[in-house]
Design a protein around this nucleic acid. Sequence first.
DNA 1: ATTGAAGTACACG
DNA 2: CTAACGCGTGTACTTCAAT
Length: 370
Amino acid sequence: MERIILHIDMDYFFAQIEERENPQFKGKSIVVGADPKEGKGRGVVSTASYEARKYGIHSAMPISKAYQLCPKAIFLPVNMELYQKVSEEIMEIVKKYLPRSIPSESEGLLRGSPAFEQVSLDEAYLDLSFLKSYSKTEALATKLKNEILEKEKLTATIGIGPNKLIAKMAAEKAKPNGLLIIKPNQVKSFLEPLDIEDLPGIGPKTGEKLRVIGINPHTKSFGVGVNKIKELKKLSKEKLAEMFGVVGEAIYERARGIDEEPVSSEEIIKSIGKQITFEKDTRDSEIIFGNFEKMIKEVHDELKENNFSFKTITVICRFQGFETHTKSKTLKELTNNFAILKKEAKKLLLRFMIENPKLIRLIGLRVKIC
DNA sequence: ATTGAAGTACACG
DNA sequence: CTAACGCGTGTACTTCAAT
């Protein structure tokens, strides 16, 4: 029983919204993210318009580097409330493309039944297996793109394939303002020429480790290394499992386009937390504990809103030089008590301050929900 | 032998 | 001074102690 899965991904989402709200920015280099502060900013880029990308600027890049690459770009702060509202409107449009009655999640576990899954503010999957044909799916995708453009004045890219993995990778290849359909018999030729890091789950570290396979440490001669998915497929499941554990086994399957993950809106929150990076590395207890108390309050408020209890408290501390550590404490039993959270969290942070004299860059607090 | 706690590493949007 | 690197969340691994 073959499925047909659609992945929709809004193009350069935050920056595109800013363009829409400020038409005079259209065609200019826009960088949405932290304040660059004349090159001294410590945040990162959230989204860059395609004009800005021509300078090498991209998401997650340190804002200081983005500023170096193009100081004349338009740097805008993140207006999350606005993006959230636009996201809600778009997701409402996307959901309309499912049949009127979606099987309720508990009974809708049937593989291939109509389903919607939002994965971030600007990405979602639809299980459209009920359409039974790729040509009908293509027509639906075109309509969906048009409706979003008409109603929201924003472009999106859609990928379609036999599973979530292929749908997502197709969208990635087709952006911006694209539509790419990969039918089951095209999966192999679609995947093989792609870089290993195009495969979701292979990040910089895993990619690097695969790349240096084949380097003989004795002769120092460089072997071929694994750069393309075609080459990755030559590694046995056992070899990948030895190198990367269970992740390696998943990589083996994915390199072959195999992915059985259901489209499902089931999403259970398992932890909530806050973290803050200081403007300058510091040992000032006023600054450190002032911010920490505020974070404790915020975390507790979020717990209360959702009626959550916690059992494990983790405090994160990043020191000058980016050296990051965590300390955690698991309580005897579940609680939602503010005083306990405050006392235990502060104890953990205090231990950091005692054990390590370095200047502090970041502090964080996270609680595991039960 | 298994489970739980603590800590680290890596990935993703 | 070839480093610059947020935030929120999830999964997996390793080590050690307790059951």
